[in-house]
Design a protein around this nucleic acid. Structure first.
Lengths: 237, 237
DNA sequence: CCAAAAGTGTTTATACTACACCCATGA
DNA sequence: TCATGGGTGTAGTATAAACACTTTTGG
């Protein structure tokens, strides 16, 4: 086995932007760093790529370490590589975002890491280039969510329309007309209305909905083909 | 300066997917690898990240090395990290795509690397995971081009409508109705019709157009905000 | 009985699709 | 004169946006 002589070998890190939703607000999970350098400052959860794993596996390992969760929606965002981005040593870091439902998993989060949920707009300043990572992940989330129904990953299994609307409004920092909103969502054919009502949010109670998982998975696959073959999408239900 | 003990340090590579357009077809620039391992096989142009540069700078350095070109549209696509993706040694590679106008720059390409343009659909099999990189870059190009006018980077300064249409049809592997196509393109307000005609493609000659660079740059900025504030876009001309 | 959130339709404007014929020219 | 690519308009459909009142019920 030949090796490449005289080349630079450096640390490769993975940092996770973990988005969560509690039914009302969009949040991000941060930890207080437990080791030097920059000990005790707020940071994304991260770690170094190890010998026997690829980046996706590393991201999943790191997410599990902090939250105890597996099989979570994750996606690679971007490789960050400024020469002095890590004060201790040259390192490239690849950021990933993850989407989780806060209420369902809150108990499983490991408090070894002093993790806390922050409102996206009220988070503290982070170490290194982590602020930039969060900002890019937020844009990517907006972007993806506009063309793909990924935000359902942030919701509990059953949810109300206003929770869903709160989520979209949080992600896009705006408000939507609720009649137009529900019409559009319903036209995707992805929502199934349940008989049950959730009474926690109002006196009247709001109907719960759930995802049609079969259609949802089909739509995720079709993703990149959206330019042509809209007809296929239509047939597919 | 503290260092991170006991962690893996590896090679970080950059590989460039260089797309080109010759007025008729969409192509990709490949080289015949001049060194071991996998010497003489077809490959993307790549190189290793060096100590004094970030990934964007490395990608630009590598592009310049092969094509002599600077200030080219480039974009990071994805970090590839399978454990055994490089047969010689563990390496992560970050792919970039670049868009260039073949006709304008053909002469400057360095033939030290045995570079050749291939039709996207007729390229040879490539080493390592480079086929996967090209495929993802192609999808990303389709994707980006649908929401952002980046394909103009592939055209000469002045171009005809049918060149433009050929380009879009090549990128999306489809055909468009030419009346609807020009109407849509014109509605962006990005095209300026010139007095001059290009007589090379037909007897009648076709009017040349050029980009309104001022508006083009403005639109690139607005990119991620496309969800709200369409009104701003409208005002902006 | 009333505050607070849930739920529900219609109209208008805009964007997209499909479609076919004449024009100008050089060879 | 004719073959080749260039250029143009309209009608129908689908999608998106604006907009306000009634219902339910726990306290």
């Amino acid at each position: 086995m030949n090796r490449y002589k005289g080349q630079l070998r450096i640390l490769v890190a993975v940092d996770c932007i973990i988005f969560g939703f509690d039914g009302k607000d969009l949040k991000v999970l941060l930890i207080q760093r437990g080791f030097e350098p920059e000990k005790n400052k707020w940071s994304l959860m991260g770690g170094f790529l190890e010998a026997n794993e690829n980046l996706d596996e590393a991201a999943n390992r790191i997410l599990k370490q902090l939250t105890g969760l597996e099989d979570i929606y994750m996606e690679q965002i971007h490789a960050f590589s400024k020469v002095d981005r890590d004060v201790a040593e040259r390192a490239v870091s690849v950021s990933y975002f993850a989407l989780i439902d806060i209420a369902r998993y809150e108990k499983q989060i490991s408090y070894d890491y002093h993790a806390e949920w922050f409102l996206i707009n009220e988070k503290p300043d982070l170490i290194f280039d982590h602020d930039e990572m969060v900002e890019l992940a937020r844009k990517q989330l907006q972007f993806k969510a506009a063309i793909q129904p990924i935000l359902f990953e942030l919701l509990p299994e059953n949810f109300t329309i206003s929770q869903l609307q709160n989520l979209y409004e949080g992600v896009y920092k705006t408000t939507f007309d609720k009649r137009n909103f529900i019409r559009k969502l319903m036209s995707t054919g992805l929502l199934i209305k349940l008989e049950v009502k959730d009474k926690s949010g109002s006196r009247k109670g709001a109907y719960l909905y759930k995802l049609d998982k079969r259609k949802y998975n089909a739509k995720l696959d079709v993703f990149f083909n959206y330019i042509h073959d809209r007809s296929e999408l239509a047939q597919q239900n």
